[in-house]
């Protein structure tokens, strides 16, 4: 029987990502990793990671924080690498050399997923490998020092697109990787946040039980890059959900369902003001920029609500 997703039962499970890793204090990445692995606690798993903060901090010289088999190949190829592992699993199963039920999970940064690893991710998903790809999205290339990525929010200050007098942080919109993955026609795609851990873990659990390629994008605060307090990771994750900056939803077989609908949608300014990367938006004369951001978020949220309504299965027999 599957382990129920409640604190009492989960607290009895082995934590398969140990303490002693060298991620920053207050980093949300290890929290996300532990939640993902705990949700998958009923299975042996093999994990692949792309180069990035999580990877460089979790396996150094002869030390490893991974209590599961883990592979890091390069920055842009975790999906291809894991597709190789999964193919070998099927090959050896076919030959009767392995009989266990093993699950395959990639855990990669936004740079390794939205940008340089995009092709590898898209290819592996299109080929239909039985794997769950988790992107821990901290909105920049953090490992190399907070450079802009395709996931960086509009107007955020990064080291390659710093908020200057002429260019006010990142001018472009974020790439919506979750929707792009949904457009691959995958059996399961979702967005999650560590603030809503039962939702996150249920999504991982659901994905693990579905065979084929799955994608979950997880909001992952980085205090170092966001210029926020070290104890704000969960607060910021919650604000991202409640402002609808990071809606929690899933797309299962083409049906979109918003899994957590904020009772009172909070203004984006609350999310922005807790982060130094948006500090420049609070200078006099920049009010328009915050309004602009609010409009973008409202538009996306409206679109998502419509998508949910459009795709929801109608009870056709009922006139």
């Amino acid at each position: 029987m599957a382990t129920p997703i409640n604190l009492k039962e989960l607290s009895k499970q082995e934590v398969r990502f140990t303490a002693g890793h060298r991620l920053c204090a207050g980093c949300a990445a290890p929290i996300v990793v532990k939640m993902v692995l705990l949700a998958a606690c009923d299975y042996p798993v093999v994990v692949a990671s792309s180069t990035g903060c999580l990877e460089v901090s979790s396996c150094i010289s002869t030390y490893t924080a991974w209590k599961v088999p883990w592979i890091h190949n390069a920055f842009e190829n975790a999906a291809a690498t894991l597709s190789g592992v999964e193919s070998m699993y099927r090959a050896l199963k076919k030959r009767g050399k392995i009989d266990k039920d093993i699950k395959f999970i990639a855990i990669c940064g936004d740079g390794g997923s939205y940008d340089i690893g995009f092709q590898s991710l898209s290819g592996a998903m299109e080929r239909g490998h039985d794997m769950l790809y988790v992107c821990y999205d901290n909105g920049a290339y953090m490992n190399t020092g907070i450079q802009r990525s395709g996931a960086t929010p509009t107007f955020a200050d990064t080291t390659t697109c710093p908020a200057g007098v002429v260019i006010p942080g990142k001018p472009q919109q974020r790439k919506d990787l979750t929707r792009i993955m949904a457009a691959h026609g995958l059996p399961y795609v979702a967005q999650a946040s560590p603030s809503h851990w039962p939702d996150l873990m249920k999504k991982v659990r659901k994905a693990i039980e579905i065979s084929g390629p799955k994608f979950i994008n997880i909001f992952t605060p980085c205090n170092r890059g966001w210029r926020s307090r070290t104890d704000d990771a969960i607060m910021l994750s919650r604000l991202a959900v409640e402002t609808c900056f990071w809606p929690l939803y899933e797309v299962e077989e083409g049906i979109t369902r918003i899994t957590v609908k904020p009772r009172d949608k909070r203004p984006i300014v609350e999310f922005l003001k807790a982060q130094g990367r948006f500090k420049h938006l609070f200078e006099p004369g920049k009010e328009k920029m915050i309004e602009q951001l609010q409009e973008m978020i409202d538009k996306n949220w409206e679109r998502l609500l419509k998508e949910e309504e459009m795709t929801s299965p109608k009870d056709e027999g009922n006139e």
Binding site: E86, S87, S120
Partner: peptide, 21 residues
């Protein structure tokens, strides 16, 4: 098991994963 990848970069990356497996 054939992996009909989307590039040679992924071909060798997949081989690395498969061989390590």
């Amino acid at each position: 098991e054939m992996i009909l990848v989307e590039s040679e970069h992924s071909a060798l990356s997949a081989c690395v994963g498969a061989a390590a497996a």
